[in-house]
Structures are given as C-alpha cells and as structure tokens.
Nucleic acid binder design. Structure first.
Length: 529
RNA sequence: GGGUUCGUAGCUCAGCCAGGUAGAGUACCGGACUUUUAAUCCGGCUGUCCGGGGUCCGAAUCCCCGCGAACCCGCCA
C-alpha cells in the first residue's frame, strides 16, 4: 500500500461520494457548471426524522461539490400530487372520503395550511430550516400543472409497452403490461388510481380513461364511472413512481439522488427508463437503510407516534440531528430520543478534536473527525468553541432541580467548576436536558411502608426543616435523629432518597436538601406521614 | 421467491464504508474520601470481534461460503 493514505476532500463518506459523482460526470462528458442534487419528500404522512435524512444527505453532497469548486443546488421535491392511500394512524376518520385524492387537494385536518399535503411537507421543511439546510422547493402539483414533464411523459407513453415488459422482467410487477403508466385525476370525482388510463392518443397527447372500481392495498375504492380524456400537458394527472423519477431527473437535470432501500426496485426501474427510454444518464445514487424505532420496526410515515425533528429538538440541538445523519450512511439503525444524550456528548468530543483539545494518535482519524465536525456545521464551523456541559450530568442535575431550574443548576455547575460563568449556550443545554429529564425520567411516587419509628423520625425531621431557624449541620442532624430513635441511619437515608428523588441512592443528603429548599422537602415528606 | 443490514466485553453499543496496538458506557473488584447511604476521585478485570475459507507484510474492517437475527420488496405510491 501507499505510504500516505489518500484522503479525499475532508475525509468523510460524503466527500468520497461527491468524488465518485464527479468522476462519473467527467467520464460521461456532461457539463458540470451547475450540478443539481435532488431529494424527495413524501407528503402523505407525518414526516419522521429519517425523512429528513434524504434531504440532509443530499445537501451534504451539495456542500462537498461546492468544496471541490463546483456550483450545486438542492431541489426538495414534494410528492404532493400523490393520492392519499390510507388514513395515517392518529388522524381523523373524516379523511376517509378523501382517499384517492391528491394530498394537495385534501383540506388540512389541522386547519393551519392550505392542504393536507402542504401541512405535511411544511413539517419537514420547517425541520430542514431549523437545521440550516438550504433548498429549492418544488411541488409535484406545480410540476404537472406547468407541464414541466410533458416531453418525458410523451416519450414514456409511446414506449409504454416496452416499459411494461421491462418492469415485469426486472421486478416482476405485471400490471404495466396491461395498463398505461399514467394516472389521470378523474375530472368528475377528483381521484387518482380509480381513473384507469387505457389509451394514449399520440397526436393529441391525450389520455382516455374510465373511473372504475379499484383497490388500494387491501381496501376497495369505488370509481365514479366517469369517462374522460386528459391532456398530459396541462390536465391533472401523474406518472407512477416506477417511471416518474426518471422523468424528473431528465426534466430537472438531476445528477444525484439518495434513496431508501424501500424504493430500491423503483429506482432500479427508473434508472433503466432514464437511460434507455429518455436517453438521460441516471443520477449517481446512494442507498441508505431505513431508520428503525427501538423495537426494530420500520418507522412508518403513516403510523402515529412519529419521531419528528420537532420532537427531537425539544431535547437535542440541531447539530445532533446533523451528526446522526452525517456520521455514516451504511447500516440499519435503531434511533430514538434516548440516543440524544450520547449524540450531544459525541458532538462535543468532535468539537474538542476540532479545536485541538483532544489529541488522537491516528492522523487519518483526526482528519475524518474534523471533516465530520465541519459537515455537521454545514462547512461553516464556529471560530471559537462554545462552552459545553456533559449532557448526562445535566440530566441528573435537572432531575433534582425541577423548579427554578436554570439558576439552581447553573449554581451547582459553578460550584463544581464545570463552567466559569453562566451563558445563553449553557442555559440552552440545561433547558434541553431539563426537557429530557422531565419527559423521560419521570419520577414515580414510590410507595414506602413506614413503621412507627420511621414516622417519628421523619416527623421530627419535618419539624426541624420547617423551623425558621436554619439548621447548622443538617447532614449530621439527620444522622443523629435516626440514631436517637434507634433507627439505622442507612435506612433513613434510603427512605429520604426515595421520597426526594424516587431513587435508592443520591448525592449527599444534607446539601441536597438545602439546595432544593428545606421547606419544600418538609412538605414532600409530610405527604407520606 | 428477490434484496439489504446486523452479529464485537456479563449488558448496551462504538470502531468497519478509505485495512495499521480491540474501545466507551455500564456492571464488577480494590483503594481514597465520608461518624452514614451515595456521589466523586484513583486503580484494576473482562474478548473464539458469529463460524469457516481467501486477499494482504498485516483483517473486527475488504472478498467468498455458511449459521443466526432483523428489515425491505414481492399491492401501490
């Protein structure tokens, strides 16, 4: 092997991918004055954090291309002309009457956007905005309304027989041997999928269809019986996914698109259509695994309890999402809120490497860690390091201090010498860790059995704590009152920790009680008496 | 039926995608401190890197064959 390892760009998989893309474009001899990358975003259900991955990673490739000196642009394409196929869990049953209609023509059940589709894509775009991802938003509805794909649609339709056979051969789906690959929106009832296209009038560029009964998944969907003719250059209707990507790639001159393995077959077919029917070399691809929830099941866009970026950002910074998505692309991954503490601390570690606070003996690792840090900062890393406090430590402190949290936790951090002074950055992390502590480390009131002696001891303690006089040596006092009544101090301490922290263990009890407030503790104890 | 991913310390996992001394947290053991529980600090222990073969000076990492687990596709988009 070579003496020195060849490092491409900033040493991450993103650079390697961008390099491969450039090599390919060169060998194809295509113009590279503007390299467009695309990411798709579904608009049929609530977008989960994995849906951001498609756009975030494509944006990473765009950054890498720019880093290599090329102009690049990310198109975020919303599939909002797709029909609603089933009601996502947790959404109102009233949506049932809209099944089959394009999501852009269904009213927003939440009432805050112009349509169902726009509501869903807005959640995703909002997430991207919060991460600082820049993109050009392109709606499927506008694409078709404006006839941007009309040439590709025409070419695909006149080759529909050949395509239908190829699809059957490649992925075993036989329907396009019978059906023309175009879904008109029924002019009468406004539904896709029921309007079955059966003939393409080549000279007029029109599709003849009949709105008939069909099934979506296992659910039957009634057609209205309308017979119509749709103009592919302006009437509403769309290509099925098996050929639509290819049309888009060609029309928008897309050179890169990542995809999840669930649409692997569609991409395979589209690559073929792109190259062989549209005569447009398919974009460079990268395939990624789906994000799974902690049970190992796919996070489905159409299920309830979706882990959205908005939920994530309650507990973690935007950087943790970027880190999650940029650290690697391979591998099936289970992801959940409980990954946030590790990601918070991992980001800090990268920052320490970047600023030279941590030395690594492996030079390649240093370069790659710095590169990852730069991508997580969207190639615009800060000039100075922000103060940081270990997230897990903060969770512990936030569990103890639930009221008046920020000043009390800050005070403790100053005492520990963890920070030199309070700052908005530290306060932000305290808030995030506090949310985590409140939502995921919920103290359950422990049932404690108290015997007579325990009651006496605790009663005595309540009196001391409620007194206006500040106890001098609380730690010792507690120890003494237990001993006086013949109770094991050990048992008393355990009891107190259970009452205060819902735990068998905890920090030194005297200072802890003083920090939280002795009268507050007194009333907590009283509840058990 | 087709495909993808995963398998590393008792446990949870990182490291693998660009080969170079096998790691972290936790658990456990010991010590310091503590009139006490704990926290904290210091030190220590733990490996068939799923099995087998190949490439290589060198493999947890790359390739092939198995075994086990999970997921995706095989409606539709």
């Amino acid at each position: 092997m070579e003496e020195e390892q060849q490092i491409i760009g900033r040493g991450t998989w993103i650079d390697k991918l961008a390099d491969e893309l450039l090599q390919r474009e060169k060998s194809l001899g295509r113009k590279t004055d503007l390299i467009r990358v695309e990411s798709g975003l579904g608009a049929s259900g609530i977008p989960h954090i994995g849906s951001l991955g498609d756009a975030v990673r494509a944006y990473g490739v765009k950054l890498a291309l720019e880093n290599f000196g090329y102009k690049s642009e990310l198109i975020a394409y919303s599939d909002d002309l797709d029909g609603l196929r089933k009601i996502p869990e947790g959404l109102p049953e009233s949506l049932k009457e809209h099944i089959g209609k394009p999501v852009s023509f269904i009213p927003d059940p939440f009432g805050c956007h112009d349509s169902y589709g726009l509501h869903m894509s807005s959640i995703l775009l909002d997430g991207l905005d919060k991460l600082g991802i820049k993109y050009k938003f392109q709606r499927g509805v506008d694409t078709y309304k404006n006839g941007l794909l009309k040439d590709q649609i025409h070419t695909i339709l006149i080759n529909s027989k050949k395509i239908g056979e190829k699809i059957a051969e490649m992925v075993g789906q036989e329907k396009y041997q019978e059906v023309v690959p175009y879904f008109p929106v029924c002019a009468s009832c406004g539904r896709l999928y029921t309007a079955i296209a059966y003939e393409y009038l080549v000279d007029e560029k029109k599709i003849k269809y009949k709105c008939s009964d069909t099934t979506i998944g296992s659910n039957p969907l009634k057609g209205c019986g309308h017979e119509g003719i749709a103009d592919i250059t302006k009437d509403l209707g769309k290509l099925p996914w098996k050929v639509e990507f290819a049309a888009r790639w060609n029309a928008f001159d897309i050179r890169f698109e990542a995809y999840g393995k669930d649409i692997m077959d569609s991409v395979k077919v589209n690559d073929w259509v792109s190259e062989n029917i549209l005569n447009f070399p398919a974009p460079t691809h990268v395939k990624y695994e789906m994000f799974l929830d902690k049970g190992g099941k796919k996070i489905s866009k159409s299920l309830g309890n979706v882990l959205t970026s908005q939920t994530w950002l309650r507990y973690g910074t935007p950087k943790t999402i970027l880190l999650l998505l940029y650290k690697r692309i391979t591998g099936a991954r289970e992801v959940g809120i409980d990954d946030i503490p590790a990601l918070m601390d991992e980001y800090n570690e990268l920052e320490n490497i970047y600023f030279g606070k941590i030395k690594l003996d492996n030079e390649t690792k240093v370069v790659r860690s710095k590169g990852l840090y730069e991508y997580v900062n969207l190639l615009n890393p800060p000039k100075v390091q922000k103060p940081y406090v270990n997230y897990r430590l903060l969770i512990q402190l936030c569990k103890i201090f639930r009221e008046n949290r920020i000043p009390l936790v800050t005070k403790k951090l100053l005492e520990y010498g963890t920070i030199k002074e309070s700052s908005p950055d530290v306060e932000e992390i305290i808030t995030l860790a506090g949310n985590y502590a409140d939502d995921y480390d919920i103290p359950t009131k422990v049932e404690i059995e108290l015997d007579d002696i325990s009651r006496q001891v605790l009663g005595h303690l309540v009196n001391i704590l409620s007194s206006d006089q500040e106890p001098t040596d609380l730690q010792n006092t507690i120890y003494q009152i237990a001993k006086d009544k013949g109770m094991q101090p050990k048992d008393l301490f355990k009891m107190l920790y259970q009452i205060i922290l819902a735990s068998d263990r905890g920090p030194k009890i005297g200072p802890l009680i003083m920090d939280i407030g002795r009268k507050k503790i007194a009333s907590s104890i009283s509840e058990y008496l």
